[in-house]
Amino acid sequence: MRKLKKFFKWFFIILTLLVVGIVIFLRLRYGGGVEYKDLSGTPKYSKAQTELFFSYKEPIGNVAAVSDKKLKTRVFFTIHPESRPETNKLMEIVDGKAVPYPSAEAQDKLFNTVLGVFVDAQNRLWTIDHGQHGFKDVKLLAFDLKTNKLVHEYVFPGKVGETLSFFNDLTVSPDGRYVFVADVSFFGRNPSLVVYDTQTKKSRRLLDGHPSVKDEGYVPVTPAKKMRFFWGAVDLLTGIDGLDFSRDGKYVYYAPMGGSGLYRVPTAICIDFNKSLEEVAKSVERIADKPLSDGIRTDEAGNVYITDVEHQGIYVITPQKKGYTLIKDQRIRWADGLALANDGYFYLADSDIPNQMLQSKSHMRKHAPYHIYRFKPISQ
């Protein structure tokens, strides 16, 4: 009996030390976030100018829409992989209802942890699947929206789609040749801008470790909660997230969620695989301060629309590098991805990250439904 008591005593001592050690490790690697300044102001749009477009029972991930004005408007969205969807993962809104795309039977075969979606000028729907943070295939797919058939598939090699990576959002060049992807790399702590050439089927990482893709230690604070987990040991400190091409394709705009700046880099230097990474880094330009953000989209007038995850809205940076609040709406719980459609609307995915990340299924059901909103660009 005495030996047994001694065993349990040392067992609990070792267990306690192990738990304390893990918490310290998590705190040092993922914690210590600070709050960011409030850049938001009085919104230019009224609440009536932001329409509730669609609601769904599961947390929405990202949204994409057809931009070709000669075609019918089509809107797609993913079920956020952080919500651990059990069946469908990519949906199209048809006659006001969510329909699995390209079919219900294809969901498990094609998708694992699909999140980012984008419709290019060639009317192909692109999806990026982070493959369980790089432990499985990090995969890019494209579907021809005329036939709804899979027309392109690429699995990123391990040196690009690294273990502990998180390929989150994507955009496609106006000519349809180049795909740029944001690797948030929350767990790996190695965020990067990734470029893929669809003709040569080559890819590479750009700007690894560059200040423009890294967080600056800012943790988002929403009306629902501060994005802090595991008894304060882990903060949502997020690097490069949203990105988009300028409409002429000359620049790629991007920003880290947990960073203070909007950046851009010339497309030409990024797609030249003979350029050194140092040359790419030297070409980065900081455009303006921004709020803590998720999705980014540009318009024809050269404005950059940035979601403001802390203040439930949209922030705009003009071609003159001036910023202002366009939308601030209490209905929006986490302004996530944006898509500009051929019907003249921006579509906004509200993923409600605070009520799905590391939450139980019952908690997510309690906070359902989840929404997609839409609004007109300022030029209209």
Rank of each mutant, 00 (worst) to 15 (best):
M1G: 15
K70M: 12
V151G: 07
H80K: 04
K366G: 07
R177M: 05
Q107R: 05
I327P: 04
P211A: 05
R2V: 13
F8Y: 15
A268W: 11
P369K: 08
K290I: 10
Y30Q: 00
I22M: 07
E58M: 13
E300G: 08
L141W: 03
T307W: 04
H311I: 03
S212C: 15
S203Q: 07
V184F: 03
D108I: 07
I269L: 10
Y45Q: 11
D244C: 08
L141C: 01
S276Y: 12
F229D: 02
E216D: 14
D137V: 12
A301M: 08
T147L: 12
L358Y: 11
K37R: 15
D248T: 13
Q380I: 11
Y370N: 00
K69N: 11
R124F: 11
G323R: 02
G259N: 04
Y373D: 03
N355V: 01
A335I: 01
A233W: 06
H371R: 05
L277W: 05
A341D: 01
D215L: 09
G158K: 15
K159R: 14
V138A: 09
R124S: 08
V309P: 00
G258K: 06
K139L: 12
S293C: 15
G242S: 10
S165K: 05
A339W: 02
G302T: 08
V280C: 11
K109D: 09
F143Y: 09
N274M: 14
T325E: 06
G188P: 00
D108R: 15
K225L: 12
F187W: 14
G261C: 14
Q312R: 09
T16K: 15
K72C: 11
T87C: 11
F76H: 01
T163F: 09
F11P: 08
G33N: 06
P85D: 02
